[in-house]
């Protein structure tokens, strides 16, 4: 009984002491820095793909390459009434990059756009031709939605994308794109190889030439490069715009970036700590101008411009932007041979 009483008294004293003791202040938090995240890739990339290729990647033969007459007809008349609207990547150095202060776009693809503008507006002052071109930036994922085609018309999100007359954005020629977006490719103006970009220091631990199995490799959503990464055992990391991959690589959130070598050269120029490696398997692509299949006359005009540039003018253009890098304009394939 006495023991119980003592225990009860001790408990009461303890409880009273605890109740009266002020709670100790929590420790000063020392949280880790949150990792930045690139824009999330959402529904558009998940657009169902067509099965089996119905269309053709062959282009339309130009009427001639002289381009001496004033072009006429369809969309060309409309363009002459306003400006030539060109969709460009804007974030691909050497191909098309925009000075954000002036809006001026520079690069091989911007020069091509200027050549096409010369053909559409032969009667205008050449010095003022850049003012006749309206560049619209096209994030990698959404670029083909910018063409007014029947297929895009049936896809509601495409209504939200600023419309352009043609897309010059290192667009690889694939039959699937012809079917899915209702576009027509011009003759190709560039031959590219899929390659890898990673940090120099990584070479001692991982030789990208030996393979990408288990490595996280970033590519633009909706590109042909992304599927190839998975096919070769890599962990594909899609982003809205391919340049987001360089940001991810700089933060070491991915092991490598994989896209066309010409784009990777632009990345390497922006971050010289990186190095370009060939893709484990050599894969060649050709890039062409994408035009709506409703505008055959524009496709023919673009092809006329490109065919006229084949040879020295195109080689001069390659040299202007890529220096001594060996580059060849791919051969043209036209409908009807």
């Amino acid at each position: 009984m006495r023991t119980t009483t003592r225990l009860a008294a001790a408990f009461l004293v303890l409880a009273a002491t605890t109740a009266c003791t002020p709670a100790s202040r929590g420790a000063v938090p020392r949280p880790s820095a949150p990792q930045p995240q690139p824009p999330a890739v959402t529904s558009v990339a998940a657009r169902p793909r067509s099965t089996g290729c119905q269309g053709t990647t062959d282009s339309l033969r130009p009427d001639g390459t002289e381009l001496v007459r004033l072009p006429r007809g369809g969309v060309i008349d409309r363009i002459r009434g306003r400006q030539l609207r060109v969709g460009v990547s804007q974030t691909a150095a050497k191909l098309s990059s925009r000075d954000l202060r002036t809006g001026a776009v520079a690069g091989l693809e911007a020069d091509l756009a200027l050549e096409i503008a010369k053909a559409i507006f032969p009667d205008r002052d050449p010095a003022r031709l850049p003012g006749q071109i309206q560049y619209v930036a096209m994030p990698t994922r959404d670029r083909f939605l910018a063409l007014e085609t029947d297929q895009n018309g049936r896809f509601p999100p495409a209504g939200n994308v600023a419309k352009v007359d043609l897309i010059i954005a290192d667009a690889s020629v694939t039959c699937e794109r012809v079917d899915t977006f209702g576009l027509r490719f011009s003759v190709p103006y560039l031959e590219t190889r899929q390659a890898l970009l990673t940090y120099r220091a990584v070479a001692g631990q991982w030789d990208p030439r030996q393979g990408i199995t288990g490595k996280s490799v970033c590519s633009g959503a909706g590109t042909v490069n992304l599927a190839r990464v998975t096919e070769h055992g890599g962990v594909a990391v899609p982003v809205v715009d391919t340049t987001d991959c360089l940001v991810q690589l700089q933060r070491h959130q991915v092991d490598a970036v994989s896209t066309d070598d010409v784009i990777l050269e632009g990345f390497h120029d922006q971050d010289p700590n990186t190095e370009i490696y060939p893709f484990p398997v050599e894969i060649k692509d050709t890039a062409a101008v994408a035009v709506s299949n409703r505008d055959p006359e524009l496709t023919r005009l673009v092809n006329a411009v490109l065919e006229r540039m084949r040879g020295k003018p195109m080689q001069d253009l390659y040299r202007k932007w890529f220096g001594d890098r060996p580059m060849v304009m791919p051969p043209a394939y036209y409908e009807g041979g």
């Binding site: 824009p39 804007q90 974030t91 990059s97 954000l100 120029d269 922006q270």
Partner: peptide, 14 residues
């Protein structure tokens, strides 16, 4: 962006 490097746009967008 001040060096007209396109990756600047990606940083700003993010």
């Amino acid at each position: 962006s001040s060096r007209v490097d396109p990756v600047g746009t990606s940083y700003l967008n993010e």
